[in-house]
């Protein structure tokens, strides 16, 4: 899919099916140099959306998958030692600020709290990035855009995003696509027929009802696409669903047995 994105620009319209007006909103924010915050559950298409928008806006994208050891230096850059002595190496954020493009911080709440503070001068009217180690003050490239995303599931909520950080963004909230759209997405992404896609989507809908009681997280669109691809590749539907939709979601034996039954109710 990535390949087709880059090969053909007209394809990219199909590659992301908008859920609402998020494409227009994102474009407007980009034109006005405003940073964007995207929130939504796992696998609902946040990253795909940002990639699609980068394509649309013809801007390069610098993606950083944040983890809990990510420090400010990892974003901004650091001094390294080479054969000639020390030299400065730009981090992904600094590179995006200098050269222009979308800097996309995926799952930003995973990063340490102090990390997000470096984003503050970049995400308000100043649009600057001060680098204290080198004493530089970089004015952001006109094409620079900051996009962060996170999943407001409770696991991340306990880390949370500082209110002072959140306040600097235009926020978009994502959810799993509506069933009829999800069917279209499944068909496009995997090539299975519509009837099977419909069954998969309503199975996904059933599984999503279990969120918060029996499952920590609901079956994502991504998982449904995985299952659809496996089915399309010739794996029996039941097996594909078990491996893609039951096992990845829980380890609980009883819940697994219930999900197995549920799968049997569809395939």
């Amino acid at each position: 899919m990535h390949k087709s994105l880059k090969e053909d620009d007209t394809m990219s319209n199909n590659a992301y099916l908008s859920q609402g007006r998020e494409v227009e909103i994102f474009k407007t924010a980009a034109e006005n140099n405003l940073p964007v915050l995207i929130k939504g559950p796992t696998g609902c298409g946040k990253t795909r959306f940002v990639e699609h928008m980068a394509e649309q806006l013809h801007r390069p994208i610098h993606t950083v998958a944040c983890h809990d050891d990510l420090t400010a230096a990892d974003l901004v850059g650091r001094h390294l030692i080479g054969a000639e002595g020390t030299y400065w190496q730009d981090g992904p954020l600094t590179r995006a600020v200098r050269e222009g493009g979308i800097c996309y911080l995926d799952e930003v709440v995973e990063a340490r709290k102090d990390t997000t503070v470096v984003l503050h001068p970049l995400s308000d009217h100043r649009r600057i990035l001060p680098i204290e180690r080198t004493g530089e003050l970089i004015q952001a490239h006109p094409d620079f855009m900051l996009v962060i995303s996170y999943n407001p599931g409770y696991q991340n909520l306990m880390k949370g995003l500082k209110p002072s950080t959140r306040q600097r963004f235009v926020a978009l909230s994502f959810d799993y696509p509506a069933p009829d759209r999800e069917v279209v997405i499944l068909c496009q992404e995997s090539g299975i027929d519509k009837q099977q896609a419909q069954q998969l989507v309503s199975l996904g809908g059933d599984l999503r009802r279990l969120k918060d009681h029996d499952l920590e997280e609901a079956a994502s669109t991504r998982l449904l696409i995985y299952a659809a691809r496996m089915i399309n590749a010739g794996l029996p539907a039941r097996e594909a669903c078990t491996t893609c939709l039951a096992q990845p979601l829980t380890d609980e034996v009883e819940t697994l047995a219930a999900i197995e039954r549920l799968i049997q109710a569809y395939f």
Partner: peptide, 15 residues
């Protein structure tokens, strides 16, 4: 029972 409860919820029964 432990299997029936999630099954019921998944099929749209009141949780």
């Amino acid at each position: 029972q432990p299997q029936l409860a999630p099954y019921f919820r998944a099929l749209g029964g009141e949780s």
